[in-house]
Structure formats: structure tokens, C-alpha cells
């Protein structure tokens, strides 16, 4: 079997029995956006806008390099964006424009008084 066949046949997340780095018993407290991402994933699943299975498929479709470089919830958010484009629910331009707006808002007001919200 050629290596290109092996590459095509194994999804990036299918790791059972594969060589791996040393095991480390690591954990971290979720950042607020990570927690929001997890909750958003649940809500998208409840509405069947993006089901859990579509999310898994969308993450696999990011490819080996992006899966390797991105963190767990970073992969989810990237997959959500692409799936929403595919479904015609958002366009790439709409998201890019909104991200620019959000980013400038965060820069202008990096640590606002929560009480003023």
C-alpha cells in the first residue's frame, strides 16, 4: 500500500494505536471564550444548525496541519465558520467584517467596567 493511500484512508483524528508523544496528565481552566465556544456548540446542536456529528466532520475536514496547530476549541470555531458558509447561513465577507468590528471594539475598550454594560 502506498503512503498516499494510507494518508487518504486515515482521518486526522483517528489516533487509536498510533505512535504518540509521552502521556502527561495535563488540564487547564477554560478561558471564557472557550467556555462560550462549548456552550455555542451545544446550542448549535440543539437547533440542528450544526449537529455534533457535523462538527466532528467539519473538524476532520480542516486537515492534518490545521488540526495539529490549533487548540481544541480553536478547531471547533474554525469548523463552525466553514460549515455556516457551506449552509449559506453566513458569508465569508459577513464574518470577516464582523470580526474586524469586534476586534476594534475589544482594542478600544480592552477592560471596560462590567457594571457599565
Amino acid at each position: 500500500m502506498t503512503s498516499i493511500e494510507d494518508f487518504m484512508r486515515r482521518l486526522p483524528n483517528d489516533v487509536g494505536g498510533q505512535p504518540s508523544p509521552a502521556f502527561q496528565r495535563v488540564d487547564h481552566e477554560l478561558k471564557p471564550w472557550e467556555k462560550r465556544c462549548h456552550a455555542l456548540a451545544d446550542v448549535l446542536d440543539f437547533h440542528k444548525i450544526i449537529s455534533t456529528e457535523e462538527k466532528r466532520r467539519g473538524v476532520e475536514a480542516l486537515g492534518t496541519e490545521m488540526i495539529g496547530r490549533l487548540g481544541y476549541y480553536e478547531r471547533w470555531l474554525t469548523a463552525f465558520a466553514v460549515i455556516l458558509f457551506q449552509k449559506g447561513l453566513l458569508t465569508p465577507t459577513q464574518l470577516a467584517e464582523r470580526m474586524a468590528v469586534v476586534e476594534s471594539r475589544f482594542r478600544a475598550d480592552p477592560a471596560p467596567d462590567p457594571a457599565a454594560a
Binding site: M8, R9, L11, A61
Partner: peptide
């Protein structure tokens, strides 16, 4: 068999 794109049966 070897589906493209998505599967839930590990290769092993």
C-alpha cells in the same frame, strides 16, 4: 472499506 471525509469506525 475506506470512506472519504467521515467515518466513525476506527481503522484499527
Amino acid at each position: 472499506r475506506f470512506p472519504l471525509g467521515h467515518y466513525r469506525v476506527p481503522l484499527y
